[in-house]
C-alpha cells in the first residue's frame, strides 16, 4: 500500500502561485476559493533577511483530526493515505473545518466541505497532481513515502526538511526542504 505525500523544495519555489491556478482550473474550484495557497515567511532586519516561500495545502495527515471529528464518515482516509471528503455524506457541520490546524478546508458554495484531494483522479492515472505538474520551478515532488526508492523518500534522506506545525500532532505528509 502506498503512502502518498509531497516534498517541496523551498529553495526553488518563487511563490508564483501557478500551483494555485492550476488547481483551480483542474478541479474547477469556485471563484473566491482555493485548495492551495502560498506562505511567504520573512525573518530579520533589512537587509539581513531570510525568506522562505512555501506552497501549502491539506497535509493529508496520518493522524487527521478532520477525519476523527467527522460525524458521518464523509471525511475519510482513502487509498494511499489521501484524506478525502465524500460530498454526499457531508452535512456541512464544519467540525472538520474547525479541527484543521492548517485551515486547509472550506465550505464549497454547494454546501459540502472541500479541500485538496492530491488530485486523486490524476494520481489514479499515474499522473502527478496538477499543482506539481505545472510548477515552473519544479519545486514540488509527489510520491510514495512507503517506497524507499521513490524520489520523495530519497529527498528526505538527502536534505534537511521540516513540516508545518508538527507539534499539533497530526503527522502531516508534506515536507519542506530547506
Amino acid at each position: 500500500m502506498a503512502r502518498y505525500g509531497m516534498v517541496i523544495d523551498t529553495k526553488k519555489c518563487v511563490g508564483c502561485q501557478d500551483c494555485v491556478v492550476a488547481c483551480k482550473t483542474e478541479n474547477q474550484v469556485p471563484h473566491g476559493y482555493s485548495r492551495d495557497w502560498l506562505a511567504y515567511e520573512t525573518i530579520g532586519k533589512f537587509p539581513k533577511l531570510n525568506m522562505e516561500i512555501r506552497t501549502e495545502r491539506c497535509n493529508h495527515c496520518d493522524n487527521p483530526p478532520c477525519v476523527y471529528c467527522c460525524p458521518t464518515g464523509a471525511s475519510h482516509i482513502s487509498d494511499g493515505g489521501i484524506v478525502l471528503v465524500e460530498h454526499d455524506k457531508c452535512i456541512g457541520c464544519k467540525a472538520c473545518v474547525a479541527s484543521c490546524p492548517y485551515d486547509a478546508r472550506f465550505v464549497h458554495p454547494e454546501g459540502y466541505v472541500s479541500k485538496c484531494t492530491f488530485c486523486e483522479h490524476r494520481v489514479k492515472e499515474g499522473k502527478d497532481p496538477a499543482c506539481v505538474s505545472v510548477c515552473p520551478t519544479h519545486c514540488m515532488y509527489f510520491g510514495d513515502f512507503d517506497d524507499p526508492e521513490s524520489e520523495v523518500s530519497k529527498l528526505l534522506q538527502e536534505r534537511k526538511y521540516h513540516a508545518i506545525i508538527p507539534e499539533a500532532g497530526t503527522k502531516p505528509h508534506i515536507y519542506y526542504l530547506t
Binding site: 473566491g32 476559493y33 482555493s34 495557497w37 502560498l38 506562505a39 511567504y40 520573512t42 464544519k94 485551515d103
Partner: peptide, 18 residues
C-alpha cells in the same frame, strides 16, 4: 522581525476564522 503572509482568502476562513 517576523513576517508571514498567507495568500489564501477562503470564505469563513480568511482573514478571520469564523
Amino acid at each position: 522581525m517576523h513576517e508571514l503572509i498567507i495568500t489564501r482568502s477562503n470564505h469563513l476562513i480568511d482573514p478571520i476564522f469564523t
